[in-house]
């Protein structure tokens, strides 16, 4: 019998404690961010899709067409092509396509690159209506950014 009343009293008390906690939060300021109106800066290490890096000295990309990224990619989403450089030695990048629909953002390509020609972009607003919008021509993107 005492257990019965004890349970009623402690149970009722626990209910009031709960109400007390929620009403305190009711009057506290909100912690959410109103996303499209406010945004947070992305962290420096944020891993968006990959992007080619601009070489300030040479005024072009840093790629030497070693195909390392293509081989490292687990989902085969990188295709690139190059041709023999005019005059000098080595190769020049002519095409770099990223099929972002397959990419899992693992970053193995960035890691494997010997010349640090690849980097993560900070883009996260990626929504669209067509699958084809996500086959990025990274070379074109780079040129558009630096022209």
């Amino acid at each position: 019998m005492t257990a019965y009343f004890k349970e009623i009293i402690s149970g009722t008390w626990s209910l009031f404690v709960g109400l007390g906690i929620t009403i305190v939060y009711f009057f506290k300021p909100v912690v959410t961010l109103q996303y499209p109106h406010e945004t947070l800066p992305m962290t420096p290490r944020y891993r968006g899709h990959i992007d080619l890096v601009w070489d300030e000295v040479r005024g072009t990309n840093k790629c030497i067409v070693c195909n390392g990224c293509m081989k490292a990619c687990p989902s085969n989403c990188i295709t690139l092509a190059g041709e023999k450089a005019e005059g000098g030695k080595g190769k020049v990048l002519t095409q770099y396509t990223l099929d972002f629909t397959k990419c899992s953002l693992c970053g193995l390509c960035v890691e494997v690159c010997p010349t640090e020609a690849l980097d993560f972009s900070k883009e996260y607003n990626l929504a669209g209506f067509d699958e084809k919008d996500y086959v990025f021509d990274l070379l074109k993107r780079l040129e558009a950014k630096h022209s």
Binding site: T22, I23, Y25, F26, F27, K28, P29, V30, V31, T32, Q34
Partner: peptide, 10 residues
């Protein structure tokens, strides 16, 4: 609105 503020949203 009330639910939002209890849960610290708007």
């Amino acid at each position: 609105k009330e639910a939002g503020h209890i849960q610290r949203r708007i």
